[in-house]
Simulated scan of single mutants.
Amino acid sequence: MNIAVTLTGLAQGVTYVIVGIFFIWLVKIVDDWRTKEFDDDVHIDDGNVAVGLRRAGLYLGIAIALSGAMGGASSGFFLDLIHLLVDGLIITGFMFSARFINDFIMLANINNDEECIKTFVQPDGSKCVGNRAVGMVEAGMYIATGFILHGSISGTGGTFFQGIVSSILFFILGQIVLLVVGLLYELITPFNVRKEIKDNNLAAGIGLSGILMALGIILMSSISGPFTGWANDIVSFSIYAVFGIVLLLICRAVIDKLLLPTTNIATEVIKDRNVAAMIVVASAINAVAIIIAFSM
């Protein structure tokens, strides 16, 4: 073992960690500015789970996306560092774009910011501040976007400029697929998903969030890999997207039968608001997505 090479590698690794922490801090500052009408830190200190969830999803999404930028063949430390800084700025912009899409399309007619600081009366009569279901869906959208960006940024081949264009293209395509899945999920679910989310039903939020994250994992796998040409990469992405959507929806129905044999998702969400049951279902769907991603 060459000690000098090892120490150099560790020093470079620490530099990448510092850059990663910088971008996590940067998205916090940007989000604080964006929600300057209320103080997120105060709400988190006061135990607002909704605000905590959305922030957690943002930080995880950034880290997942940046890990894609840190992978791949090296072009030399300083050039890699410059690429990472550029990718980090692009990723930051994408994350807030994803949030805008989530606000105005995925959860249309729901104001995320207002919902996350609103006071709700629970079915048992207790009060809580913040719509946890909205916070959960927003977290899921951030994390799913992080997986998509990880795949698009981590690919090898092509020029640096082609890599940036590829990231933009697959971000847009990935968001379209996520929105399509959100619509299909509403259509096949025997209850009004958006109404339950607006009513602060965390179980409903976990259900939708779980599907989004699972699809993000599959799309990451479909995008990752060497650049083989625009037409070929887009066709491959489209095939995997359709395959992933169909398989996930089938798996959701199967999981409903296997893991909830004495009940069903509709009952657990609407009647019981069973968060524990939906965590198990969402985890199972994401476990299947991981298996699908590594089998393709």
Rank of each mutant, 00 (worst) to 15 (best):
residue 194 R to T: 11
residue 2 N to L: 02
residue 182 G to F: 11
residue 58 L to M: 09
residue 83 H to F: 01
residue 267 T to I: 05
residue 147 F to G: 06
residue 218 I to K: 11
residue 279 I to Q: 06
residue 90 I to V: 11
residue 9 G to R: 00
residue 210 G to Y: 03
residue 65 A to H: 07
residue 115 E to V: 08
residue 250 I to S: 12
residue 76 G to I: 00
residue 52 G to R: 10
residue 248 L to G: 10
residue 112 N to T: 14
residue 17 V to R: 04
residue 192 N to D: 14
residue 285 I to A: 11
residue 109 N to V: 10
residue 205 G to W: 04
residue 280 V to G: 01
residue 131 N to P: 09
residue 199 D to L: 10
residue 14 V to K: 01
residue 239 I to A: 07
residue 33 W to L: 13
residue 174 G to I: 03
residue 20 G to M: 01
residue 125 G to I: 15
residue 254 V to T: 14
residue 250 I to M: 14
residue 284 A to M: 06
residue 188 I to R: 09
residue 189 T to F: 07
residue 81 L to K: 01
residue 21 I to L: 03
residue 172 I to G: 01
residue 51 V to M: 13
residue 192 N to G: 08
residue 296 M to I: 10
residue 134 V to C: 10
residue 124 D to V: 15
residue 39 D to N: 15
residue 81 L to N: 03
residue 291 I to D: 10
residue 132 R to L: 06
residue 89 L to F: 13
residue 36 K to P: 13
residue 292 I to T: 08
residue 219 L to S: 06
residue 143 I to F: 05
residue 165 V to P: 00
residue 126 S to K: 15
residue 141 M to Q: 06
residue 72 G to N: 00
residue 129 V to P: 11
residue 60 L to K: 01
residue 97 S to Q: 11
residue 195 K to G: 13
residue 258 L to P: 07
residue 182 G to N: 13
residue 19 V to L: 06
residue 183 L to S: 12
residue 194 R to E: 12
residue 207 G to C: 06
residue 280 V to F: 04
residue 112 N to F: 11
residue 245 I to A: 08
residue 164 I to H: 02
residue 253 A to L: 15
residue 98 A to V: 08
residue 179 L to I: 09
residue 147 F to M: 05
residue 111 N to A: 13
residue 294 F to A: 06
residue 175 Q to C: 05
residue 49 V to T: 13
residue 178 L to D: 04
residue 22 F to Q: 00
residue 75 S to L: 01
residue 191 F to D: 06
residue 173 L to P: 00
residue 93 G to A: 13
residue 119 T to F: 11
residue 189 T to L: 06
residue 246 V to L: 12
residue 127 K to C: 15
residue 44 I to N: 09
residue 218 I to Q: 10
residue 88 G to N: 07
residue 43 H to P: 11
residue 27 V to S: 05
residue 280 V to D: 02
residue 173 L to H: 02
residue 193 V to E: 10
residue 45 D to A: 14
residue 8 T to H: 03
residue 265 I to Q: 01
residue 104 F to A: 14
residue 17 V to Y: 00
residue 18 I to N: 04
residue 216 G to E: 12
residue 218 I to G: 09
residue 30 V to T: 11
residue 20 G to V: 02
residue 221 S to R: 09
residue 47 G to I: 12
residue 225 G to M: 07
residue 223 I to G: 03
residue 156 T to D: 03
residue 255 I to E: 11
residue 67 S to Q: 03
residue 225 G to Y: 07
residue 128 C to A: 15
residue 1 M to C: 01
residue 65 A to R: 07
residue 166 S to Y: 00
